[in-house]
Design a protein around this nucleic acid. Structure first.
Lengths: 155, 155
DNA sequence: CACAATTCAATCGCGCACAATACAATCACC
DNA sequence: GGTGATTGTATTGTGCGCGATTGAATTGTG
């Protein structure tokens, strides 16, 4: 027994969140393996597809809440695979713009089944899904206090 | 716009879970920095403190849902810091037992304030916390289907 | 008892994830 | 125009996290 009751692992909110996130990521992997994508790469492609324009690394990072330390190598790997192209923004050469290639775009069709398959895998009710989503958004919003990140602005 | 509506990043349940988990982990860091602990190390200490007996790497891994590829180096670092000791189980030498040292045990008192401080940081209502916890457990349970991991057995 | 099958932790290889730092480009101000 | 301050991305260093593999120990079977 832990000496302090509040230190019991089973009483931590953080732990199930941490565990569930990893488990969900893991559940995606068999669906993404045929396309040789990791889960963060999948999310990155989602973010890129959702915008009609090229996005900067920074904007992508804001969206995905990842910094360039993570994104740059990840995008480089996607570029090596021919799914995206990265080039300096002529209007401000500090910025790097990310373009989805034709191959990257076509992948959209290949992956269209993934969200549905995952929902089937989870077997969660719509109500529970919506409630979970709401609570997570709330948690994220409160953790964002003082961070200045735009949460819903892109929606 | 994504060509397929279900591929919109904002419609994914997985993404807020992923983002919230990382944000929560990040929120812990300032509280753990004075003790030179990372969040996974903190969880590991929690798991160790909650048991009166030495735990094997495997049991710890079951508890934390981490495999030895992650745990072994993590425990080695904790051992280097004198917080735990690792030794082979004489009853079955395939197993490694993990003992909390006096220093590791004393850390419990130092960290007793952390969960409360985090709850203050989040500012989430008790009801929301309980609901979130319930939904996460539910999600974890469904993702565990077929994995054979003991979910509540340790409680 | 001998040997195949299984188990357990460690290792290997790779991809994250992030704080700190570096560098070039741009902005702000005089 | 010149210079200091700020910005945006890349790099560096470290700690995960996990699938695949390895080596030793244990278990199961004949």
């Amino acid at each position: 027994m832990a000496r302090h009751a509040q230190l019991e692992l089973d009483l931590q909110l953080c732990f199930p969140l941490y565990a569930a996130s990893r488990a969900l990521t893991k559940a995606y992997q068999p669906l993404l393996d045929p396309f040789d994508l990791t889960y963060p790469q999948y999310l990155t492609m989602l973010a890129l597809w959702s915008s009609p324009d090229d996005q900067t690394v920074g904007a992508l990072g804001d969206r995905l809440r990842l910094d360039s330390g993570t994104l740059t190598p990840l995008l480089k790997r996607l570029e090596t695979r021919g799914l995206v192209r990265r080039h300096r923004d002529p209007a401000d050469e500090r910025r790097v713009l990310v373009t989805v290639t034709e191959a990257g775009d076509a992948l959209q069709d290949d992956l269209a089944h993934v969200p549905g398959a995952l929902v089937d895998r989870i077997g969660m009710t719509l109500d529970d899904g919506i409630a979970l989503r709401r609570l997570l958004d709330k948690l994220l919003a409160s953790l964002d206090d003082g961070d200045g990140l735009a949460v819903g602005a892109a929606s």
